[in-house]
């Protein structure tokens, strides 16, 4: 019974964090802040939801597959977000602070 309630708590928290991430995607002004919002909630939501699912199964092949998905996603989603930010940086995308400094320089 305790495992059931624990898994419900984990699933609810995971769903909540993924929704906040999606909202963060829209509310943040700049690309680099959006990458930050999306990738952080990606990791935490994955962690919580998959732990919530693991609590629902007794230890066996299913739990091992879930653990593999969890470890793989926790390793690759930050890497992908880092590669995205690096590629944006190389592509000449300026951060909000830099665009503001350029505007100040042009103004004076």
């Amino acid at each position: 019974m305790i495992l059931e309630t624990l898994s419900i708590i984990f699933l609810v928290l995971g769903a909540f964090f993924s929704i906040t991430g999606a909202i963060g995607l829209f509310r943040f002004p700049d690309f680099f802040t959006r990458v930050h919002a999306a990738s952080i909630t990606d990791s935490i939501a994955t962690l919580l939801i998959i732990i919530g699912l693991i609590l629902r199964t007794d230890f066996g092949l299913i739990a091992v597959k879930l653990l593999f998905i969890l470890i793989f996603l926790l390793l690759t989603s930050p890497t992908a977000s880092h590669a995205l930010a690096k590629s944006a940086r190389h592509g000449g995308l300026l951060t909000m602070a830099e665009t503001r400094d350029d505007k100040n320089k042009e103004a004076h």
């Binding site: 995607l25 690309f31 994955t46 995205l84």
Partner: peptide, 19 residues
């Protein structure tokens, strides 16, 4: 890069959705 970010988030969420 926003598009790639959206698609990346869509992909990770699909994995969770399938599970």
């Amino acid at each position: 890069y926003d598009r790639i970010l959206g698609v990346n988030m869509f992909g990770t969420k699909t994995v969770l959705f399938i599970a």
